[in-house]
Design a protein around this nucleic acid. Structure first.
Length: 1009
RNA sequence: GGGCUCGUAGCUCAGCUGGUUAGAGCACCGAGCUGAUAACUCGGGGGGCGUUGGUUCGAAUCCAACCGAGCCCA
């Protein structure tokens, strides 16, 4: 006996019950261990930060991370999965700053780095419980107990080791990077923060400056008059940092002159600048200006400022003092003709594009401002804040006749969202990893990766690699893996430390405290002796980008190479599979790829499903501000985790955006899960009535054609689902299962109903039970990776309750293997056609107003010869489904012509169907008998009888009814489980009703025996 | 501003190696069936396949530009 299954169920409740079962039986761990001898299958879990609650998009990623290893486990792979937590980074710091009311780096330092970092340490696990709860609730099977944590000493030590490896290969260097910088908070802002602080209508200077040309003058100009390039800026304070002018190669430039001077600018901007009273002397292309040299507005060497020069990368070389310094004109592709003069002032220290152009053109690089926004050096305006220095600079230029015009404009400018100080784009010293040195390898290894969807490979990710720039990986912050670089206070030499033992051996080490904490400020106190001089080595202040932390997880989670030293050989790197959302292409996907390439020159992962984002029902991004964030718990508690999982797997291709609407999950539950459940419940109900016990292997039963058909479909399904999952396409695989379940429910079970219902337990009935049983058990296994709860419920009841020797969880079972010899493509096509013809027949009946319950003599089908053969093979099914005595074939044309003989014809290419409206007395009587049966069935139900209850039926009626009751007595008894058909008034208390059937009055009564 | 993706029925999605009249599910309307099924069956309304060009005998499908959305980067 199976446990009785109600046709309705509460999925969330069921799931929680199953969850407990798994826990009690330790199923996850056993499912992994059982495959210990199998080939390894490695999932890397991209670590989330547990300082906020998990959102619906996290559920999406986690179920995709789950399904593939579950499938692989069932296929015999050894697939341990380790959870991980990302614990460092600016978001964590910002959260803590907010909680403590701190607004600047100075605030943090006053508060104390030790106390601040202690708060960060607490904060990162503030939602750990909730993360663990949801992970378990959605059945993302991952080892939470051995989770790696990026802030642990072992983890950090491996990260240090990784940096040291790169350091030794000279892949780490110091350069500059232009970032939006708040001079008051003393920190860079992320682009997200910058976006918070844009202000329209900001008043700024708008000045036109003259740069005097020294060399490369256009010919034919009077040598007596000076010639200037005219450039424009809204940030005069960056002018002392100017080291080049940029033009557009293809644009037209003009030389205009008056009696005192010549000016050069783009013709397109002449009117806007208002040089009407100047005469055009010459026209030329931008490229003709390239290389022309001009005099700096301020020679840095005269004001005690250092001058450095790019060497083709972010590295800079100090330049000697040069009294006759000149700068030159370069061509770039970003010169705008919508504002300014078409000649752009370039200050590589104070603009991102300027900086990039600096690298490309080996320009000079000059810093004239410090991090507080104060002008350095010995300029007349030194010591002033940049925005205050503006007017002094303008005045200075005017006094030297280098100012053409000075105005004010209003435009949009970014301010610090916390302190409202104007942001400065500022080149800061930063540590870089020279990823460009391995660019070819990055590209080559990307070729070895299977991307789903495929376009990411050469699209978003491939492009990113093609345009690779060195990784600026240091952060001037507090809560992160400290950069393991020490600098000598006296000679300035650097050393990189790659591990704790190495550190302990450093001569003169001081500040080492137990218990060791590799975070600031404790590492900052570790000093040792310089090997080159008598000086002391002190750690630089930076921490590293937390993307480096997470990108190092393949080795750091195993504390490589200090432990697990064989991890490169035993299949743990590369991973077989990872999955995250698309925004990780330049985040985690990249950091994994880059680090593995830099360290080991191999790819880091072999297959990756790159997920689309989850948007709200209107297609808009979810945000707290909009209030459209979907709370995963609400959905899970209402519909269950399986419904949500199924929605994520099948609603759209994984790479597309998800337009999340709760009603979609509801639909999934109704359409798919409850259909499946009802087939299951139907089976259990009838199997229990008939005390069916599955025979297991080796018991042969004579299958009917219908059985052979669904078994054929089932085996085809196994092939399809297997190849879908093997190809990292759960969507396609899931949709196939949906199709199968629809066929199973709406054709196989409907067509087999009578086989289950009939009283005698013959071979045919056994075949039906065996077949449906096989379908359900196989479905449970196929579905296990998708909807682990429901699959388990079915398996527990269908398999475990019968076969004590079977694995005690569906997740310990093997994935089904198709028996391709049972796939009968022809039979599949035959049935498909039978379904179509049945549909046409029903349409014809519907049009004629004749119920399916009324038997008809003949059904004409217009179809080609091949179709006739098909239908002939499955004829009994059609006869029964259509309730006709005979099926006749003809050409489509001839069948269509039957209309004029009073037939009703319905057609849909390539076939049609016709029925006659004539009904013989015999057929009419049979129809009435079926009406009576239906009535009695309904009454049984209304009376509250059990399906298997036997009854006595009472009837009264006119002669015709009595005749029908007599003629069809056996049939009626069998269908309604009536032991007797008694003519007469039922006794007191019997459930009775009166009806008019086909024009005849009838009174019926049913009594449970 | 650049890159990638997406745009097909009211909604969610198929179709897109070019080839009859563009499909499914849900929703809606009408009818039917009902002792497995909040299921099912039949019918109906609802589509200028984002727009505009081009290639072709033929374009939802290939190409180009544009528009809109999402993401990433400026």
């Amino acid at each position: 006996m199976f446990h009785p299954v109600n046709s309705r169920t509460n999925f969330p409740q069921l799931e929680e019950k199953i969850s407990v079962l798994w826990k009690n039986k330790n199923v996850f761990a056993r499912s992994v261990e059982a495959r210990r001898d199998g080939r390894r299958f490695v999932l890397y879990e991209g670590p989330p930060t547990a300082n906020g609650s998990p959102g619906i998009h996290h559920v999406l990623a986690r179920v995709f991370k789950d399904i593939i290893p579950r499938y692989k486990t069932m296929k015999g792979y050894y697939a341990p999965r380790i959870a991980g937590w990302d614990t460092h980074g600016l978001p964590v710091e910002l959260e803590v700053e907010k909680a403590l009311g701190l607004t600047s780096k100075k605030d943090i330092e006053d508060f104390g780095i030790d106390k601040f970092n202690a708060r960060c340490r607490e904060s990162v696990f503030s939602y750990l419980k909730e993360w663990e709860a949801i992970t378990e609730r959605i059945a993302f099977w991952v080892d939470l107990d051995s989770a790696y944590v990026t802030m642990n000493n072992d983890y950090i030590e491996t990260v240090w080791w990784a940096i040291k490896q790169m350091w030794d290969k000279e892949l780490v260097y110091q350069g500059y990077k232009v970032t939006p910088h708040c001079p008051r908070c003393g920190t860079s802002l992320s682009s997200h923060e910058v976006a918070l602080g844009y202000r329209d209508d900001t008043e700024d200077p708008s000045v036109y400056i003259k740069f005097k040309i020294i060399k490369g003058l256009p010919e034919g100009l009077s040598k007596n008059k000076p010639t200037y390039f005219l450039a424009w800026t809204t940030t005069p304070w960056t002018l002392p940092g100017n080291t080049a002018l940029a033009v557009a190669s293809d644009a037209e430039y003009v030389v205009v002159g008056n009696d005192k001077e010549y000016l050069i600018m783009a013709s397109a901007r002449l009117d806007a600048v208002g040089l009407d009273d100047y005469k055009v002397k010459e026209k030329l292309k931008g490229r003709q200006l390239v290389g022309a040299e001009y005099e700096p507005l301020f020679n840095p060497h005269e004001f005690g400022v250092e001058r450095r020069r790019f060497q083709g990368s972010s590295e800079l070389q100090l330049q000697k003092a040069d009294k006759k310094l000149t700068y030159r004109v370069i061509a770039t592709d970003f010169v705008s003709m919508d504002e300014g003069t078409g000649i752009v002032h370039m200050a590589p220290a104070y603009g991102e594009v300027d900086y990039e152009a600096g690298i490309e053109n080996n320009l000079d690089f000059i810093h004239t401002v410090d991090l507080q926004g104060i002008v350095t050096g010995s300029y007349p305006f030194s010591g002033k804040f940049v925005k205050d220095a503006d007017k002094d600079i303008i005045a200075d230029l005017e006094s030297r006749n280098l100012l053409f015009r000075s105005e004010k404009i209003r435009h949009t400018y970014p301010f610090c969202w916390r302190c409202e100080a104007p942001l400065l784009y500022y080149a800061k010293q930063t540590w870089y990893i020279r990823t460009t040195a391995v660019k070819n390898e990055l590209i080559a290894h990307n070729d070895e990766i299977n991307w789903y969807p495929e376009h990411i490979k050469h699209g978003r990710f491939g492009d990113w690699l093609q345009n690779n720039v060195d990784w600026a990986f240091s952060r001037e912050r507090y809560w992160g893996t400290p950069l393991p670089v020490w600098r000598c206070e006296s000679c300035g030499s650097y050393e990189c430390v790659g591990g704790i033992k190495e550190l302990e051996k450093k001569p003169g080490l001081s500040g080492f405290k137990e218990p060791l904490d590799l975070h600031r400020p404790f590492v900052d106190e570790l000093t040792f002796d310089c090997q080159k001089c008598e000086g002391k080595m002190r750690r630089v202040t930076e921490v590293i980008d937390c993307w480096f932390d997470s990108g190092a997880m393949p080795i750091a989670q195993h504390h490589y190479p200090y432990e697990n030293e064989n991890l490169l050989e035993d299949g743990r790197l590369p991973a077989d599979y990872i999955s995250e959302a698309v925004d990780q292409t330049r985040g985690w996907f990249y950091s994994l790829h880059a680090i593995a390439t830099l360290l080991f020159n191999r790819r880091c992962f072999s297959n990756v499903i790159c997920l689309g984002h989850v948007l709200d029902a209107k297609g808009e991004k979810m945000s707290k501000a909009k209030g459209n964030v979907v709370e995963p718990w609400a959905v899970i508690n209402k519909y269950g985790a399986d419904a949500l999982r199924w929605y994520f797997f099948t609603s759209t291709a994984a790479g597309n955006v998800y337009r999340f609407d709760e009603s979609m999950v509801a639909e999934v539950s109704r359409r798919f899960l409850s259909t499946l459940w009802n087939v299951y419940s139907f089976f259990v109900t009838y199997a229990n009535i008939d005390r069916f016990t599955p025979g297991g292997e080796g018991v042969s039963v004579e299958l009917s054609e219908l059985d052979r058909w669904i078994i054929s479909e089932l085996n085809q399904l196994i092939v399809d689902v297997d190849s879908g999952l093997d190809g990292y396409n759960p969507t396609e695989a899931g949709r196939r299962i949906e199709g199968f379940v629809a066929d199973l429910s709406n054709w196989y079970v409907r067509r087999s109903r009578r086989r289950f219902w009939k009283s005698e337990s013959d071979a045919d009935k056994l075949a039906a039970y065996s077949t449906l049983y096989e379908c359900l058990v196989t479905l449970a296994k196929l579905l296990a990776p998708f909807i682990p709860f429901l699959a388990e419920e079915m398996y527990q009841n269908l398999v475990c309750s019968v076969f004590t020797e079977a694995p005690d969880s569906v997740h310990l079972a093997d994935f089904p293997v198709a028996d391709e010899s049972k796939i009968d493509k022809q039979l599949g096509e035959d049935i498909r056609l039978a379904m179509k013809v049945s549909s046409l027949g029903r349409a014809a009946r519907s049009q004629a107003g004749i119920k399916v319950r009324q038997p008809l003599a003949v059904n004409y089908v217009g179809i080609d010869l091949k179709g006739r053969e098909s239908l002939e093979r499955v004829k009994p099914q059609i006869l029964e489904e259509m309730n006709v005595k005979e099926l006749k074939y003809d050409t489509v044309e001839n069948v269509a012509a039957l209309t004029k003989d009073g037939y009703v014809v319905v057609g849909e290419s390539p076939c049609n169907s016709a029925i006659s409206l004539e009904i013989s007395p015999e057929l009419r009587a049979e129809g009435v008998a079926r009406e009576i049966v239906r009535r009695l069935q309904t009454m049984r139900r209304s009376a509250g009888f059990d399906i298997a209850d036997h009854i006595t039926t009472y009837y009264q009626g006119e002669a015709y009814i009595r005749q029908v009751m007599a003629d069809f007595a056996d049939y009626i008894k069998q269908e309604t489980l009536s032991r007797e058909l008694v003519e007469g008034v039922p006794e007191e208390g019997v459930f009775a009703e009166s009806h008019k059937l086909s024009g005849y009055d009838i009174a019926l009564g049913v009594k449970r025996l």
